[in-house]
Write a protein that binds this DNA or RNA. Structure first.
Lengths: 137, 137, 137, 137
DNA sequence: GTGGTCTAGACCACA
DNA sequence: GTGGTCTAGACCACG
């Protein structure tokens, strides 16, 4: 589970967790039946209170995304309808737009912006730049 | 001043206003001395409470971005140093990361992601396709 | 008109004015038909905005305490029932209690408190101590 | 902590709370380290909103009178210097003046006013008439 | 008309 | 349970 919390964003932490797990489940990154991380270790990893993770899991259960078996753990539910390819892109476009608009506001030029995008993609690929693609494009 | 609020983002409204105005001031979109919209009309336009805008303006004043004269209005301060190139990129990186992580969760591959980025860049360049812009590089 | 504004009390200024004029009118200090100070000079004397005094007078008119004749000025109305002697004392007792309780909280002893009371009485009598009374009592 | 709120006074509720707690702390009624009532119960007791008490406590913390530990509670600070004799009197004088001015407006004469003062002092001494207290002077 | 303050309700993070 | 924050409505002082 790759979860990224932005403590400065003002967006409630538990919602950041909910959104990211829901996206992962909807996209198939988390397959039905897959076990989610236990509350305690995940809280420790993200440096947040256990209650906050518990709240996220409760919310996910209410949304029908996961299922919690007392004493066993939490699991991705079978019947959760995945996003369509189109829906996925719509979600992404919103976040990409956010960054693009910020770039415009800050007068960061297109070239610099694209360089940053490639840099971050490489960063999350485990630091391995994918040289076969044209970064300078 | 065109300000866009995302009511579903979970990010506090007043912070969305602060960020957008600060960006506009730092990028030169709002020149020093320029008058900001009055609290009431802006609140009405954005469909939020007057106090929410007031809080944003107060925060901007505390940050030294604007100056507010009771009964007169609020104005962009002269001595507000724009973001450094480094600071700009730090801001941007946060937003890019957000999109990259979502792409990962949605299992959108690198190629598709980059295609979307270019598409959105073109969209905000007024529909100008990339090739025309490359000439200016 | 002896009106005293406490800018630090948090009590709205216009209400402080209303209360004090109402008391003066109810007690007979301001006789029916007597002219009130004009807004402008009173505002100047009390160092407040003219609108604030205007608001006080409007409120007094709504309460039926005074009457405003356009272009003439404001006057105490005839039909305003004065406080009974008992009512007067009840009002006073509330304010005296306030001071007495504060004295207790601050552990100001009875002797000191009484000395202060005499001092203030003298102050408002035009600085003339009334020596025929025992200040040290 | 016995706190009395006057809802009709026009003075902000949170300030009434601030003043009374500050007085109690400055006078030694509340010893350093002593725990203040928690926000919720106190708000319920005084029939005001939770935030009103929270604002009072925040103000007291800013003034250095109390210290508040999130999730633990609020406590009187050790290093809080009590009022000087002079400062005490200045506070008192304001309240005494208020009563003196009201007496003037109500045309309550000096003698009656002083009688009332003595009566209230006796009242708060637990009904002990003046003569018994004079022995301790 | 301008900005500022007080009170309130709902939600959040933490223990 | 604790304190903290965001949003909102009503009222105030001032020009």
């Amino acid at each position: 589970m790759m979860i990224r919390i932005d403590f400065k964003s003002g967006k409630p932490i538990y919602l950041q967790v909910v959104d990211q797990i829901r996206y992962a489940a909807a996209s198939g990154q988390l397959r039905p039946g897959a076990a989610l991380p236990s509350i305690r270790p995940l809280a420790q990893e993200l440096r947040v209170n256990r209650n906050t993770i518990a709240k996220a899991y409760t919310e996910l259960e209410n949304q029908g995304v996961i299922e919690t078996l007392a004493g066993k753990g939490s699991f991705v539910k079978d019947n959760h309808s995945p996003f369509t390819k189109q829906a996925k892109q719509k979600l992404l476009v919103g976040e990409i737009d956010q960054a693009v608009v910020t770039a415009h506001h800050l007068q960061v030029d297109r070239e610099t912006f694209l360089r940053l995008v490639h840099e971050r993609l490489d960063h999350y690929s485990g630091g391995t730049p994918e040289r076969k693609r044209k970064e300078s494009k």
